[in-house]
Nucleic acid binder design. Structure first.
Length: 478
RNA sequence: GGGGCUGUGGGCUAGUCUGGUAUGCUCCGGGGUUCGGGACUCCGUGACCUGAGUUCAAAUCUCAGCAGCCCCA
């Protein structure tokens, strides 16, 4: 395995292939064949995301993948913003009948859902209306694609909420931040939740907020984003309700898009090491893998013990598997499961059976412990918690080490070049300065101001020297 | 968006400059010995990205396409 620190790009590509997460040989740009190990992990991640959304009053729904061009174009800014990103379906059937109207392969589902919302939402009693769907979306990305980071097809969840008042919709943004916080915590991924600057909003939104984390190469990665849509779409799609006084009003809307596919990419990158993946126990398809060690004559005893351990763990809802493949040696299996990122390995051999003990090995630290068989469940639970918190701690440490502060352009450029991450600066708020900062630093974007933790600027804009209006963070993003 | 590099059995790779017989490792299938940190050995199957061109002859040269990787914007 390549070295993650010195050669992140190649390490990442290698781990995707070696850990059998995805196969890039499908030969359509930006599309992947997803393999069981990553899908199992992402399904667990989806569970956490969906549970959190449902806890907060969202109902599941499924909408079509095809959107008629006329729907797609209803909100002008949205249509304009996404126009370069759409795959169009134009014909079908054996005689290639052209459709009367082009159909967009959804790049996001606002325009699919809101055409229905206008029929479904009639009165204040229908509100708030909160639904979500987990689905694939397609975007004709021009930038270079990377597995789980930027694809022309990706897997996400999108929540769409409709309210009576502006205040309720604005409050939803905070709820979405809370959801992001709870979800990313389960994945042990640190982040800052930013309010994006005006020039970097979701097309069609009034304001955009997004969680940014930092990858091992110092690049910033956008994770869930949430958008206050105001009445832009409700006006375009005629989503109206009759309020308690009998007046007809346009609704207020938000949408929220946590992309499990991309979060998985960040998780692989952030937690992995030179042996491969390290999965947080909260989402690992297996928390423990049992490696039986046997020689001729004692096979049966060892296998019986291994299987009884598996049964015991499963009875306590701890996912476990016995790797009983006869064709591989124990050493080979150690490496195999380390590559896959299973948090805990349990070794059972004849010597252990004699001593009534088991050997546990932690994936994150490599630490080995001989434990009494009677303490197994207790120790596994303890190790899981420790691994979970250790991964979070490690990630947090790296994240904090990559947040810095600059007072002038030279310093900003130096920090971005040398360590990347997020650099705090003061900014006048003009798009011109943002563009200049990006040009001067070769790619440094203004990611925004942390929501709920806005700081008062004390000095001048780092670029133009005029009075600063905001304290913002700059980073080079994926 | 721009530039560079690459495409050879399932995976990795030699061969490409200088056109002619495709190398090795690994995986896979079978046999035997092994098994507490990627075992050993014997046998076997299996490949030149696609299309066009040049040529007696193309993995090799030319052009186009597709895909991937890297760097820059």
């Amino acid at each position: 395995m390549k070295n993650k620190k010195s050669n992140f790009s190649e390490w990442y590509t290698e781990v995707i292939q070696e850990a059998e997460l995805a196969d890039i040989r499908y030969n359509v740009k930006g599309f992947l064949a997803h393999m069981p190990w990553s899908v199992r992990t992402m399904k667990n991640m989806y569970c956490i995301v969906e549970r959190e959304l449902e806890k907060k009053g969202h109902e599941p729904a499924w909408f079509p993948a095809l959107i008629p061009e006329s729907y797609f174009k209803k909100e002008a800014e949205h249509a304009e913003g996404f126009s370069a990103d759409v795959f169009w379906v134009t014909e079908g059937g054996s005689d290639n009948t052209k459709f009367s109207e082009r159909l967009a392969l959804r790049p996001t589902s606002e325009t699919a859902m809101y055409s229905m919302f206008s029929l479904w939402i009639r009165t204040w009693r229908d509100l708030p209306y909160k639904i979500y769907q987990s689905c694939q979306v397609w975007r004709f990305e021009g930038k270079s694609t990377r597995p789980f980071i930027r694809g022309r097809e990706f897997y996400w969840t999108e929540a769409h909420d409709v309210f009576e008042t502006k205040e309720e919709a604005e409050k939803q943004v905070e709820e979405d931040r809370d959801t992001t916080c709870n979800v990313l915590k389960e994945f042990a991924i640190p982040f800052i939740f930013f309010k994006r600057p005006e020039h970097d909003k979701f097309k069609g939104a009034v304001s955009t907020y997004a969680a940014d984390s930092i990858m091992p190469d110092g690049k910033v990665i956008q994770l869930p984003s949430t958008h206050f849509l105001g009445q832009n779409f409700s006006k375009a799609f005629n989503i109206k309700f009759v309020d308690k006084k009998g007046d007809e009003k346009h609704a207020w809307q938000t949408c929220y898009g946590p992309a499990v596919w991309r979060i998985f990419g960040a998780l692989v990158a952030i937690h992995g090491d030179d042996k491969g993946l390290i999965l947080p126990p909260s989402i690992a398809p297996l928390v423990a893998v049992i490696i039986p060690i046997y020689f001729k004559g004692s096979d049966q005893k060892v296998m019986e013990k291994a299987n009884s351990i598996k049964k015991l763990l499963e009875s306590r809802c701890i996912s476990a598997k016995v790797d009983d493949r006869a064709e591989h040696t124990p050493g080979w299996k150690y490496n195999y499961w380390e590559l896959k990122g299973v948090p805990i390995r349990i070794e059972v051999g004849p010597k252990d059976i004699e001593k009534n003990q088991l050997v546990l090995v932690r994936r994150d630290t490599g630490e080995k412990a001989a434990i009494k068989e009677s303490e197994l469940v207790e120790k596994i639970t303890k190790f899981s918690e420790e691994i979970q918190s250790n991964l979070a701690k490690r990630a947090e440490k790296f994240f904090k080490e990559h947040i810095s502060e600059a007072n002038d352009m030279a310093q900003l450029k130096k920090l971005l070049d040398e360590q990347g991450g997020l650099v705090k600066v003061e900014w006048c708020g003009s798009e011109e300065c943002a563009d200049n900062i990006k040009a001067d630093t070769v790619g440094g974007d203004i990611r925004g101001t942390p929501l709920g933790k806005e700081e008062k600027p004390k000095g001048k804009c780092i670029r133009c020297g005029k009075k600063a209006e905001q304290v913002v963070y700059v980073g080079k993003a994926y």
